[in-house]
Design a protein around this nucleic acid. Structure first.
Lengths: 149, 149
DNA sequence: GATACTTGTATAAGTCAGTGATATAGTTTC
DNA sequence: GAAACTATATCACTGACTTATACAAGTATC
């Protein structure tokens, strides 16, 4: 019944460490009225620019109706805008507004502040080790984000 | 209007790297019908043993009614049980069942497998750097988890 | 040991963010 | 230009939270 998992013991250690970290980060996440998905979409729009509505669904891991509703909420709050594609009348081009950018920045700052509070309590070697691993973790995040589905 | 934030530039880099990682991990999280909070509570019960219902609220960052409802759902799914404290008739002692333990283990395995897929694609130095930072990140998670509110 | 306060859970009503099924409008294809 | 396809929207529903409140068990006071 048990599948022969091809998972390296180190990978299990990393997965378990990340899981703990994930819980911690979840606790720190500011409650500013943005859902996880909403914040993620805004960051994506800020980072990669305007996107077709449905091109956001896959990467964000939600269905198209959910994205339609999310964009509607973001639009109502003035954080994102709907535009149209002159070449194709069906599509909706979603872009972030200045207010949206500000909200992202505010959230980022609060998040950094909350985390910083704990980082300060950490021994210097620990901070150094985390800093040293940062580029590696960013490459890892990049791989995950690229993943087809 | 801008608060003088006392956040070290390194901390901002770490916060931003963690935020990216967080998004990635969120994408990898298996959809097995457990909410984030549900999975977190089960892991906590597995790790720290039976707990009074309301002792779970604070650490999980949800209100008491939410915890009551969550425990009800977990109980309905056979993943957790309500017990009583002979010394105090008001309290409910929540404990994990064997099925709950199995669910946690299944989730952990799937999560490790999904992550491992990407870790394999990473250069050896990157994996080494992440491994080296693991204890530091675990200590950090510990600090966050301990936090009063 | 009855009265009043406190504490631990539960219930109720409302909201928000997701789902699948389906409708609708624009595009492509033949 | 009718059929098939595609992008978005709408609908009805569910899950997981919130606040406010109820209630029952414990504690303290007199």
């Amino acid at each position: 019944m048990q599948e022969a998992t091809e998972v390296h013991p180190d990978d299990e250690a990393i997965a378990s460490g990340f899981a703990q970290l994930y819980e911690g980060l979840r606790r720190l996440t500011p409650r500013d009225g943005l859902s996880l998905t909403a914040a993620s979409v805004l960051r994506r729009l800020e980072r990669s620019g305007r996107q077709r509505l449905c091109d956001l669904c896959g990467p964000e891991g939600v269905t198209q109706p959910a994205m339609t509703q999310l964009v509607t909420r973001l639009e109502k709050d003035g954080l994102a805008e709907r535009g149209s594609d002159p070449a194709d009348g069906r599509v909706v081009i979603v872009s972030i507004t200045d207010a949206g950018r500000a909200a992202v920045e505010r959230r980022r700052a609060r998040n950094a502040e909350a985390l910083s509070e704990h980082l300060r309590a950490l021994p210097t070697e620990d901070r150094a080790a985390i800093l040293a691993a940062l580029p590696a973790m960013e490459r890892l995040s990049g791989l995950v984000a690229e993943q087809p589905q």
